[in-house]
C-alpha cells in the first residue's frame, strides 16, 4: 500500500521538478515522468504502469511552459507503462532492466513518430536530428533511475505481478 501512495504522491510533483530544476541542469536531463511510469510498471504491474503513465504524461502536457498537443505525452507514457508492466511481470531483474531500456527507447520513438504524424514542426527530422544524441544520453541516465525507483518501490515484493495489482 505504502508504495502505491508513494507513486500517487510523485505523480503531481515530478512534472514540476522537471521544468523548474531538472531541465535547468547543464547536462542532458532524464524525463522524470517517464522514469516514474516505467518504475511503477516494473514494481506494481501493468495497471499501475498505464495509470501512472497516463496521469504523469497528462500533467507533463499541461504544466506550463508546455505548448504542444494535450494528451500526446499521456498517450506515449500510458503505452510505455502498459508495455513495461506486461513485459516485466514475473520476470527476473535482468529481464526487467531490458524492459526498462526498451521502454525508454519506445517513448522516444513514439513521441517522435506521433509528432511527425501530427505535423508538429518541432518533430520534423531536421529539428529532431541534433537532439537525438542528447535524448539518448538522457534516456541512458533514465534507465538506472527507473531500476532504482522500482527497487525502492519494492520490485522484489511484486513477484506475482498481475495478481498483486488486482488485489
Amino acid at each position: 500500500m505504502r508504495r502505491r501512495i508513494a507513486v500517487a504522491l510523485l505523480i503531481p510533483v515530478l512534472p514540476v521538478l522537471q521544468v523548474t530544476l531538472v531541465n535547468r541542469l547543464p547536462f542532458p536531463a532524464p524525463d522524470l515522468a517517464l522514469v516514474l511510469a516505467i518504475g511503477a510498471a516494473l514494481a506494481l504491474g501493468t495497471g499501475w504502469g498505464a495509470a501512472t503513465g497516463f496521469a504523469a504524461g497528462l500533467l507533463t502536457d499541461l504544466v506550463p511552459p508546455s505548448d504542444g498537443t494535450i494528451g500526446r505525452t499521456a498517450f506515449v507514457l500510458c503505452v510505455v507503462g502498459l508495455f513495461c508492466g506486461w513485459a516485466a511481470a514475473d520476470r527476473p531483474l535482468p529481464w526487467k532492466a531490458a524492459a526498462a531500456v526498451v521502454g525508454v527507447l519506445c517513448a522516444l520513438g513514439l513521441e517522435t513518430g506521433l509528432g511527425m504524424l501530427l505535423g508538429d514542426p518541432r518533430m520534423t527530422w531536421p529539428a529532431i536530428e541534433p537532439l537525438l544524441p542528447l535524448s539518448l544520453l538522457g534516456g541512458a541516465v533514465a534507465v538506472p533511475l527507473v531500476l532504482g525507483l522500482a527497487y525502492l518501490l519494492g520490485a522484489r515484493a511484486a513477484g506475482p505481478g498481475e495478481r498483486e495489482t488486482a488485489r
Partner: peptide
C-alpha cells in the same frame, strides 16, 4: 475474483484509448 482481474486487464487498454482520444481531440 475473476471479474476483478478482467477489469484490471481491460482498464489499462481503456486508458490508452482515452489518451489517444484526448490527443486527437486537442490536435484537430
Amino acid at each position: 475474483m475473476q471479474r476483478r482481474s478482467r477489469v484490471a486487464r481491460v482498464a489499462p487498454v481503456l486508458l490508452v484509448l482515452v489518451a489517444f482520444t484526448l490527443m486527437a481531440l486537442d490536435h484537430t
